[in-house]
Simulated scan of single mutants.
Amino acid sequence: MTVAITPDSLMWIAHRPDIVFTEGEGSWLRDRDGKRYLDFVQGWAVNSLGHCPPQMRDALAAQAAKLVSVSPAFYNEPAMQLAQLLAQHSGLDKVFFTSTGAEANEGAIKLARKWGRMHRGGAFEIITFDNSFHGRTLATMSASGKPGWDSLFAPQVPGFPKAQLNDINSVEALITDNTVAVMLEPVQGEAGVIPATYEFMQALRELTTVRGLLLVVDEVQSGMGRCSALFAHQLSGIRPDIMTLGKGLGGGVPLGALLAREEVCCFEAGDQGGTYNGNPLMTAVGLAVLDTIAEPAFLAHIDARAAQLAAGLQRLVERHGLIGERGEGLLRALVLPGDVGADIVSRARELAPEGLLLNAPRPNLLRFMPALNVSETEVEQMLEMLDELLARVG
């Protein structure tokens, strides 16, 4: 007798549509009823090379046949190779691997506080920003400026005063003897795809340098080619002291990273660790992803598709009387005239014969995070489907 597979045993954490996906390839997903969906969410910018890319499949199979897991108390070749490449591409010196972006951000907070204890008389406060998002651990939720999170699991972890993005005076006003660092996303993704201006990033780098503070960039969502450069802060021509990665680094497998300048690395034995950190299976996949994305031709492809997407969204703005579009690279948003984002997302899934997967992180906004290798035809198809949806809700 066949027993139906249901979600009843999964802990409830979110409203999920009554869809069960079973297969994916590139920019497309298929549910267990056989319907296809054009995916412009890609696991919230996780699937940098789309669903089931051959580079990842091959890397998983090859590494699984050699070594799956070894204690992080020992070295393994994929972790060392990936660390070397990340250091080379970022201009930072040392890498600590994690399983998630939130874990990488937690490590960045710990590293900054340890450095503050050693070099700034015990300074521990890290200035972060209103509407920022750094993860779902207690410390990273406290660092985040997402509305309502200050009381969700109260009391918060102290030490995260909030400044205003793109307002350098608001940052300077918060600096005290207790300040050790400033931490930000180059593009605030969950807030609605709000980029830090290049001028602000440069001013922030100058301010932190002059005041002897660390600059921490959270590139969990904006990094790994998502914003047309390998790392979004590179668009501003700056180098941070600490950088965190996640999501697109693993391309769909659990992998994150904490990178730092040599002078900042002050962990001692036992300060930092984790059972799966630097796992050879995951880092072998990360190596395949990075090798693909870092190619100049691939980054040029991202830039071309980003220009196509931005121009197409702007046409929809003008045609339907919307507020505007914004973003960097293939992390973009369409600002709507009313709180119809959730309605459009729902209607998009129900399109026939093929559905469309979109995301609305704010009621009046749609966010687009396609695979970085999305095709010109697929971008155009998404724009046509969205045009139809906007006409319906208009």
Score class of each variant (00 low, 15 high):
S71T: 14
S71N: 07
S71W: 02
A73G: 05
F74D: 12
F74L: 14
F74Y: 15
Y75E: 14
Y75H: 14
Y75F: 13
Y75V: 13
N76S: 12
N76D: 08
P78C: 11
P78I: 06
A79I: 02
A79D: 02
M80S: 14
Q81C: 10
L82S: 04
L82T: 04
L82W: 04
A83M: 10
A83G: 15
A83D: 08
A83T: 11
A83R: 12
L86H: 14
A87C: 13
A87G: 15
A87P: 05
Q88W: 14
H89P: 10
H89Q: 15
H89D: 15
S90P: 06
G91H: 06
L92Y: 10
L92W: 09
L92G: 10
L92M: 13
D93M: 03
D93A: 01
D93V: 00
D93S: 01
D93R: 02
K94M: 13
K94P: 04
K94T: 14
V95H: 03
V95I: 13
V95L: 11
F96E: 06
F97K: 01
F97N: 03
F97G: 01
F97R: 04
T98A: 12
T98D: 12
T98N: 13
S99G: 14
S99R: 12
T100Q: 01
T100V: 02
G101D: 10
A102F: 04
A102Y: 05
E103F: 03
E103C: 07
A104G: 02
A104Q: 03
A104P: 02
A104K: 00
N105P: 03
N105Q: 05
N105T: 02
N105R: 02
G107R: 00
G107F: 02
G107K: 03
A108W: 09
I109N: 07
I109H: 09
I109R: 09
I109Q: 08
I109T: 11
I109P: 07
K110Q: 12
K110I: 03
L111F: 10
L111G: 07
A112E: 10
R113Y: 09
R113H: 08
R113L: 09
R113W: 08
R113G: 07
R113I: 08
R113Q: 12
K114C: 06
K114P: 03
K114Y: 06
K114N: 07
K114L: 13
K114T: 11
W115F: 12
W115A: 06
W115R: 08
G116V: 10
G116I: 10
R117L: 08
M118K: 12
M118T: 04
R120N: 05
R120E: 05
R120G: 07
R120T: 07
G121A: 09
G121S: 08
G121T: 09
G122T: 02
G122Q: 04
G122M: 01
A123F: 01
F124I: 00
F124M: 02
E125Q: 11
I126R: 05
I126P: 04
I127T: 06
I127S: 04
I127V: 12
I127L: 05
F129M: 03
F129D: 03
N131T: 10
N131D: 10
N131M: 10
S132A: 06
S132T: 01
F133S: 11
F133I: 07
F133N: 06
H134K: 00
H134Q: 02
R136N: 13
R136K: 12
R136T: 13
T137W: 08
